[in-house]
Nucleic acid binder design. Structure first.
Length: 500
RNA sequence: GGCGACGUGGCCAAGUGGCAAGGCAGGGGCCUGCAAAGCCCUUAUCCCCGGUUCGAAUCCGGGCGUCGCCUCCA
């Protein structure tokens, strides 16, 4: 079994073989910290978080590097607008970025360098490029000469001359070629600046990724990731400057995530049609948003909308119920003769098949949509088993149910979809139940859990007496404060959901 | 204009040569005092036209449509 990945560089799926067996060195372009990140950024970071988690789950030792671009034109512009130092803008949104990543259950990078911490090695790379004739200096600016690198365009499948025929290339008479890009920019008054052999200035955007990845991972490293809109010019330029500087290949596998769209249009800060990740997460739980995004392959465009979020809430609910049902059944008293051998074999077989399918799907270029399908298939098998045998389980059945529950949790965990709430012990019941219990069950104490028990007892009595009005008053009353009662063969099950 | 991707049931979506996953929504049935949860059943000429093949959603050619990159962008 091997992992296959789609490599933008070769335009096909290839078997993934890291440079060093058992270890993976990966780099993912991080944000420019001039604003809160939007859900399109979030999707890309989610993609690579899942790829990383999966590689770790498959036994690889993964070193994951992601930069933070904290010096850049956009940050400078933002600082000017607000009349504050650029460093303050960068600091504010660096913190916001890290918080958003934590909230979105994205694991922290192994290393997360900031551009401003890497100025020295960036200058060193520019010096290398000037020395070996791939870069030239004009009035304190340093440009990379694309004509000096014959392979320029190999990642994006472009030809320099085709690019030139497009009308949208800046004409800058100081450049030898319109496609030449800045490695180092002379500082204008009021801008952040560092001393360099070419005068005070700051690094060009593409440079930091080349320098950091080489410093933290060495070249060539295994996986370079980012959004597909970075293929050109950003990643093309990284390749050019890195390979020209080191004489070695830069990255072995280039993985690019598809764009997130709103109404079938790319969402981007420049189009203004963006939703901030933190705003979405304020309204929808992280597992719901992750589930929604992962139900589409990472390279495909993904149309995002409130309707789809609401659908994902329902899908997520089904997943929670799968685990909730298993958890309830396997923690209940077992005393029956148990399920039939046929049913046990069917469920055990379904678990094996689902695990195999999950691995096969993820091995195939991280097909999370197919992998999630495998998880749902466990649910159908498990629910079918329970619908037939829940009222007559034996000890061996319990083990099977534990296996099923653990498998669902494990596989979803690989996708970073946390479902702890499905097995929560309802210990944090709201105090409102006490008043309800007093009113409907004559409860006089002050303990929420006892109050619920009193209410369930009262309902049980009412049901025995066929006093449906009284029984439903309990259920409806609890529902109003977020506590759902579901009757099962093992008695009523209580499910409290604080978020409503 | 150049380069590239995509078009699968009402909606979303996996599937790159061999009986069309999965989710959401809808309909019917079962279970339930009624519910909830769940189970079972149910909906596809895979954009169109040609071609290759014993066999095509899948490969090739053409068409139509949508999107992305070519400028800062995840």
């Amino acid at each position: 079994m091997s992992i296959r990945v789609y490599n933008t560089l070769t335009r096909r799926k290839e078997e993934f073989e890291p440079r060093e067996p058992g270890k993976v060195a990966m780099y993912v372009c991080g944000p420019t910290v001039y604003n809160h990140i939007h859900i399109g950024n979030g999707r890309t970071f989610l993609t690579f978080d899942v790829i990383r988690r999966y590689l770790v789950w498959r036994g690889f030792d993964v070193r994951f590097v992601q930069n933070i671009t904290d010096v850049d034109d956009k940050i400078i512009n933002r600082a000017k607008e607000e009349g504050i130092p650029a460093a303050d803008v960068a600091r504010t949104y660096t913190h916001a970025f890290r918080k958003a990543m934590d909230d979105f259950a994205i694991e922290r990078p192994t290393v997360q360098p900031k551009a401003t911490e890497m100025i020295e090695p960036m200058i060193a790379m520019v010096e290398r490029l000037v020395e070996n004739g791939h870069a030239y200096v004009v009035d304190g600016d340093v440009y990379f000469s694309v004509r000096s690198f014959p392979e320029y365009g190999k990642l994006s499948g472009r030809d320099i001359d085709d690019l030139l025929s497009g009308a949208r290339v800046d004409v800058d008479t100081r450049k030898q070629d319109p496609l030449d890009f800045a490695l180092w920019k002379a500082a204008k008054p009021g801008e952040p600046h560092w001393p360099s052999p070419w005068g005070e200035g700051r690094p060009g955007w593409h440079l930091e990724c080349s320098v950091m990845s080489e410093a933290e991972l060495g070249v060539p490293f295994d996986i370079h990731g980012g959004g597909s809109d970075l293929v050109f010019p950003h990643h093309e330029n990284e390749i050019a400057q890195s390979e020209a500087a080191t004489g070695k290949p830069f990255a072995r596998y280039w993985l690019h995530g598809g764009m997130l769209q709103i109404n079938a249009e790319k969402m981007s800060k420049s189009l203004g049609n963006f939703m901030l990740l933190r705003d979405v997460l304020a309204q929808y739980p992280t597992p719901v948003v992750r589930l929604l995004m992962l139900q589409t392959h990472y390279r495909s465009p993904l149309d995002f909308s409130p309707d789809r979020l609401d659908e994902a809430v329902s899908s997520h609910e089904r997943i929670l119920n799968i685990v909730r049902n298993l958890h309830w059944a396997r923690t209940a008293e077992v005393s029956g003769e148990g399920a039939t051998d046929e049913s046990r074999v069917a469920l055990a077989g379904a678990l094996e098949e689902a695990r195999a399918k999950f691995v096969a799907e993820m091995d195939d270029d991280f097909n999370t949509a197919g992998a999630i399908g495998a998880v749902f298939e466990i649910g159908r098998a498990a629910n079918a088993f329970l619908s037939e045998h829940q009222s007559d389980l034996a000890e061996v059945d319990r083990e099977l149910l534990v296996n099923a529950e653990n498998l669902v949790i494990e596989l979803l965990g690989v996708l970073g979809i946390e479902i702890a709430e499905a097995t929560r012990d309802n210990s944090d019941l709201p105090p409102d139940v006490i008043g309800l219990a007093e009113q409907l069950a004559g409860y006089t104490g002050t303990d929420s859990a006892e109050a619920v028990k009193a209410l369930l007892a009262a309902r049980s009595v009412a049901r025995t007496e066929k006093n449906w009005a009284a029984a439903d008053a309990v259920r409806d009353g609890l529902m109003l404060i977020g506590i759902a009662i579901e009757d099962t063969p093992q008695g009523p099950r209580v499910n409290y959901r604080p978020r409503g």
